[in-house]
């Protein structure tokens, strides 16, 4: 079960890397309004899923899990935001921080239910698809 969780986390990292490369190629075409929304959505949902996976694997260490999820969300939101502008960096940073702070609490309440994790993964995939399609249409 633990290896399945780590496999899911690895798939998440691969997907967010692919989306990162795709957005980086299109970054000259995207305006700042869409850039702000893209950085908020990508950083927030990546922090959400990774926080849930971490608290499932290590239920005894609440504090290091919270700190790790917060730093991950901040990093992903800042990287997505830094393609466009300084202000998109700021909004991606703060939203990733907020979602990463919240996600281990939500994952701890769910008590290792696999259904909730699959729901969060579906949410993450759907948001990445929305980001890709919105970046293509502009």
């Amino acid at each position: 079960m633990v290896s399945l969780y780590f496999l899911l986390f690895y798939i998440n990292i691969l997907l967010i890397g692919c989306v990162l490369v795709y957005i980086y190629k299109l970054r000259k075409l995207i305006g700042f309004q869409l850039g702000m929304t893209i950085s908020m959505v990508a950083g927030g949902f990546f922090a959400f899923t990774s926080g849930i996976i971490f608290i499932y694997v290590y239920p005894f260490h609440f504090l290091p899990v919270t700190i790790a999820a917060t730093l991950l969300g901040m990093a992903v939101g800042s990287i997505f935001g830094s393609f466009f502008d300084y202000q998109t960096l700021l909004s991606g940073y703060s939203n990733g921080l907020m979602m990463g702070m919240m996600s281990p609490m939500v994952g701890a309440v769910a008590k290792n239910s696999f259904l909730f994790l699959s729901f969060a993964e579906c949410l993450f995939f759907a948001s990445l698809l929305l980001v890709l399609s919105s970046a293509r249409q502009t």
Binding site: P59, F60, F62, L63, T66, M98, M101, M102, M105, A108, V109, K111
Partner: peptide, 24 residues
């Protein structure tokens, strides 16, 4: 929203059995 979140986080840190975690 931020201050309510901070209060919730501090309450879980003090008493982890609020979230169903094993208490330390």
């Amino acid at each position: 929203i931020g201050s309510l979140m901070g209060t919730m986080l501090a309450a879980v840190i003090i008493d982890p059995s609020l979230c169903g975690l094993p208490s330390q």
